[in-house]
Protein backbone atom coordinates (compact mmCIF):
# COMPACT_ATOMS: atom_id res chain seq x y z
CA UNK A 1 0.00 0.00 0.00
CA UNK A 2 1.26 3.44 -0.74
CA UNK A 3 0.80 6.67 1.10
CA UNK A 4 -1.73 7.82 -1.42
CA UNK A 5 -4.17 5.20 -0.22
CA UNK A 6 -3.68 6.06 3.40
CA UNK A 7 -4.31 9.73 2.96
CA UNK A 8 -6.97 10.46 0.38
CA UNK A 9 -7.98 14.08 0.66
CA UNK A 10 -11.26 15.01 -0.89
CA UNK A 11 -12.77 18.09 -2.36
CA UNK A 12 -16.50 18.23 -2.54
CA UNK A 13 -18.25 19.95 -5.41
CA UNK A 14 -21.96 20.48 -5.43
CA UNK A 15 -22.99 20.73 -9.08
CA UNK A 16 -26.74 21.17 -8.80
CA UNK A 17 -27.70 18.73 -6.16
CA UNK A 18 -30.81 19.03 -4.02
CA UNK A 19 -28.39 19.04 -1.03
CA UNK A 20 -29.58 15.60 -0.04
CA UNK A 21 -26.36 13.90 -1.12
CA UNK A 22 -24.26 16.72 0.32
CA UNK A 23 -25.73 16.25 3.73
CA UNK A 24 -24.86 12.59 3.51
CA UNK A 25 -21.27 13.44 2.60
CA UNK A 26 -21.01 15.72 5.59
CA UNK A 27 -22.60 13.02 7.69
CA UNK A 28 -19.65 10.86 6.81
CA UNK A 29 -17.41 13.36 8.59
CA UNK A 30 -19.41 13.27 11.80
CA UNK A 31 -18.46 11.17 14.84
CA UNK A 32 -20.79 8.38 13.79
CA UNK A 33 -18.92 7.58 10.60
CA UNK A 34 -15.72 9.59 11.16
CA UNK A 35 -13.94 9.20 7.85
CA UNK A 36 -10.82 10.79 9.28
CA UNK A 37 -10.19 7.31 10.67
CA UNK A 38 -9.05 6.43 7.15
CA UNK A 39 -7.04 9.61 6.79
CA UNK A 40 -9.74 11.21 4.69
CA UNK A 41 -9.87 14.98 5.01
CA UNK A 42 -12.34 17.29 3.37
CA UNK A 43 -9.96 20.01 2.15
CA UNK A 44 -12.24 22.33 0.26
CA UNK A 45 -9.37 23.14 -2.07
CA UNK A 46 -8.95 21.23 -5.34
CA UNK A 47 -5.20 21.91 -5.34
CA UNK A 48 -4.81 19.86 -2.19
CA UNK A 49 -7.26 17.13 -3.09
CA UNK A 50 -6.92 13.64 -4.54
CA UNK A 51 -10.56 12.72 -4.87
CA UNK A 52 -13.33 14.88 -6.27
CA UNK A 53 -16.69 14.04 -4.74
CA UNK A 54 -19.31 15.48 -6.98
CA UNK A 55 -23.02 15.59 -6.30
CA UNK A 56 -25.84 16.77 -8.52
CA UNK A 57 -26.26 17.02 -12.25
CA UNK A 58 -24.50 19.21 -14.75
CA UNK A 59 -26.27 22.28 -16.00
CA UNK A 60 -25.28 25.39 -17.94
CA UNK A 61 -24.24 27.27 -14.80
CA UNK A 62 -21.87 24.74 -13.32
CA UNK A 63 -20.22 23.27 -16.39
CA UNK A 64 -17.33 25.66 -16.33
CA UNK A 65 -16.60 25.61 -12.59
CA UNK A 66 -16.83 21.82 -12.49
CA UNK A 67 -14.29 21.48 -15.25
CA UNK A 68 -12.12 24.12 -13.59
CA UNK A 69 -12.14 22.42 -10.21
CA UNK A 70 -11.26 19.14 -11.87
CA UNK A 71 -8.43 20.71 -13.87
CA UNK A 72 -6.95 22.31 -10.80
CA UNK A 73 -6.46 19.01 -9.00
CA UNK A 74 -2.90 17.74 -9.33
CA UNK A 75 -2.38 14.26 -10.76
CA UNK A 76 -3.11 11.53 -9.82
CA UNK A 77 -6.77 12.19 -9.13
CA UNK A 78 -10.10 10.36 -9.28
CA UNK A 79 -13.69 11.49 -9.51
CA UNK A 80 -16.51 9.94 -7.53
CA UNK A 81 -20.00 10.79 -8.72
CA UNK A 82 -22.41 10.66 -5.83
CA UNK A 83 -26.11 10.07 -6.20
CA UNK A 84 -28.29 9.43 -9.16
CA UNK A 85 -28.19 13.06 -10.22
CA UNK A 86 -24.44 12.93 -10.66
CA UNK A 87 -24.76 9.72 -12.59
CA UNK A 88 -27.49 10.59 -15.03
CA UNK A 89 -29.15 13.80 -14.03
CA UNK A 90 -31.60 11.92 -11.85
CA UNK A 91 -34.94 13.53 -11.23
CA UNK A 92 -33.65 16.75 -12.78
CA UNK A 93 -32.78 15.00 -16.01
CA UNK A 94 -35.68 16.51 -17.95
CA UNK A 95 -35.05 20.08 -16.84
CA UNK A 96 -34.50 22.55 -19.65
CA UNK A 97 -30.96 23.46 -18.61
CA UNK A 98 -29.68 20.10 -17.36
CA UNK A 99 -27.39 18.22 -19.67
CA UNK A 100 -27.09 15.03 -17.61
CA UNK A 101 -24.56 13.35 -15.34
CA UNK A 102 -21.18 14.84 -14.59
CA UNK A 103 -19.48 12.46 -16.99
CA UNK A 104 -20.66 14.82 -19.68
CA UNK A 105 -17.93 17.18 -18.52
CA UNK A 106 -15.23 15.23 -16.69
CA UNK A 107 -14.21 11.56 -16.63
CA UNK A 108 -15.84 9.73 -13.73
CA UNK A 109 -14.12 6.79 -12.05
CA UNK A 110 -16.66 5.64 -9.45
CA UNK A 111 -20.40 5.92 -9.38
CA UNK A 112 -22.12 5.80 -6.02
CA UNK A 113 -25.81 5.10 -6.50
CA UNK A 114 -28.63 6.23 -4.29
CA UNK A 115 -31.01 9.10 -3.86
CA UNK A 116 -29.63 10.17 -1.55
CA UNK A 117 -26.51 8.01 -1.41
CA UNK A 118 -25.98 6.63 2.09
CA UNK A 119 -22.83 7.55 4.00
CA UNK A 120 -21.78 3.91 4.05
CA UNK A 121 -21.93 3.66 0.30
CA UNK A 122 -20.13 6.98 -0.04
CA UNK A 123 -17.30 5.68 2.11
CA UNK A 124 -17.39 2.49 0.08
CA UNK A 125 -17.15 4.54 -3.09
CA UNK A 126 -14.15 6.42 -1.78
CA UNK A 127 -12.45 3.17 -0.83
CA UNK A 128 -13.06 1.85 -4.33
CA UNK A 129 -11.64 5.07 -5.68
CA UNK A 130 -8.44 4.45 -3.73
CA UNK A 131 -7.71 1.38 -5.84
CA UNK A 132 -8.14 3.38 -9.02
CA UNK A 133 -6.01 6.17 -7.57
CA UNK A 134 -3.21 3.69 -7.02
CA UNK A 135 -3.44 2.42 -10.60
CA UNK A 136 -3.30 5.96 -11.88
CA UNK A 137 -0.27 6.68 -9.74
CA UNK A 138 1.55 3.69 -11.16
CA UNK A 139 0.65 4.76 -14.66
CA UNK A 140 1.91 8.26 -13.92
CA UNK A 141 5.12 6.83 -12.55
CA UNK A 142 5.69 4.74 -15.66
CA UNK A 143 4.96 7.66 -17.89
CA UNK A 144 7.33 9.81 -15.87
CA UNK A 145 10.03 7.16 -16.12
CA UNK A 146 9.62 6.70 -19.84
CA UNK A 147 9.73 10.48 -20.20
CA UNK A 148 12.97 10.75 -18.34
CA UNK A 149 14.52 7.88 -20.31
CA UNK A 150 13.53 9.67 -23.45
CA UNK A 151 15.30 12.75 -22.23
CA UNK A 152 18.28 10.62 -21.38
CA UNK A 153 18.40 9.16 -24.89
CA UNK A 154 18.11 12.54 -26.49
Amino acid sequence: MTYLQKSPWIVHYNASSCNGCDIEILAALTPVFDVERFGIINTGNPKHADILLCTGSVNEQNKVPLKNVYDQMPEPKVVVAIGICAATGGIFRECYNVSGGIDKIIPVDVWVPGCAARPESIIDGVVTALGILEQKRLKMLQKGNSDSTKVGEA
Binding site: P46, V64, P65, N68, V69
Partner: peptide, 8 residues
Protein backbone atom coordinates in the same frame (compact mmCIF):
# COMPACT_ATOMS: atom_id res chain seq x y z
CA UNK B 1 -3.71 29.08 -13.08
CA UNK B 2 -4.41 30.14 -9.48
CA UNK B 3 -7.50 28.88 -7.69
CA UNK B 4 -10.36 31.28 -8.25
CA UNK B 5 -13.23 29.47 -6.56
CA UNK B 6 -13.88 27.42 -9.67
CA UNK B 7 -13.85 30.27 -12.15
CA UNK B 8 -11.28 30.00 -14.90
Amino acid sequence: PPYMGGRP
